[in-house]
Design a protein around this nucleic acid. Sequence first.
DNA 1: CAAAAAATGTCAACACTATTGACGCATTTC
DNA 2: GAAATGCGTCAATAGTGTTGACATTTTTTG
Lengths: 169, 169
Amino acid sequence: MAMSDSSSLEPDGGNSYLHDDELIRGIEMLFYAYRDFTSDPDEILKTYGFGRAHHRVVHFVGRNPGMTVTELLAILKVTKQSLSRVLSQLVAEGFIAQEKGSRDRRQRLLSLTAKGKILFSELSSPQKARVAKAYREAGAEAVAGYRKVLADLLNAEERAAVLKSVERS
Amino acid sequence: MAMSDSSSLEPDGGNSYLHDDELIRGIEMLFYAYRDFTSDPDEILKTYGFGRAHHRVVHFVGRNPGMTVTELLAILKVTKQSLSRVLSQLVAEGFIAQEKGSRDRRQRLLSLTAKGKILFSELSSPQKARVAKAYREAGAEAVAGYRKVLADLLNAEERAAVLKSVERS
DNA sequence: CAAAAAATGTCAACACTATTGACGCATTTC
DNA sequence: GAAATGCGTCAATAGTGTTGACATTTTTTG
């Protein structure tokens, strides 16, 4: 369709990557990547009778063993009622273990069981392969750029927390 | 936690960005970016009584005026029954117009009405601002890397189509 | 031309994920 | 002791997705 030259005013001083059309492309790329990215785990989840919400819980508990329910809620940004459904299932079916906190006994510290770890592996495997392939094809510099832009896309208030959780190496 | 040397075998010849842990971080970054990225439009959509599905339809129809229902289905990768609900609403409420194809009169060519274009603007505005800010902070090189990696994350079969749709400038 | 295929729509049932609102209980903090 | 926190639960409702079955119109094909 051509068209959509964004604006004729070039408010960015000639940085073509800041043109309206480029920005929209940036939006769409994220949509497409996310769409394809979730497709592999979705297939696997179906065989367990689980959905995407279960995946997210398994993933973040797997990555943050001993985390509390409140912390998980802060990452997922859903209500506790919404989390409750999937978390209860995962606990009932033996994928996730809950342990009372020793310092604060109100807390339920979450961790993966052996069974949960297997599921975690199974789900992350195709995603890791996908990312590895993309990283390999794109090269180290592109990867750095990818990570930088994604970090800058986050809500400012969240950035610190995410970078901490994602970069505790 | 420290550590996370992934495997002790270093199957990547010392390219640290291909370590298991880095791959997992790449996964999580995408989750977080998508989560925050959708939050602005979600707020606006609520005031219209719409959801994310409506947004996607408005977006892609806005970007591809005259597109057919089948093409839209291919982009969204949902069933026609699922699309039907939101598309019908958008048509009924005057955001999207349907016109019989002149070459193939079975087709319903989709386009935004004036009202639809306003909604498109309103929804894309905060997302463009977010991307622009991230692009500006990250710089041109990082942006190129971001786009390259995202493209490489796509399903191979889809890559050509997406790059075509995203890059018809 | 008749049969097959394609593009679209629709009815119905169901599943998953999310929300808001209202409580209840145990435990910790002030 | 009162207030706040962490967690769980019941209930109602909404949004988005699926599968399956059909119907209509129009184009393509043998």
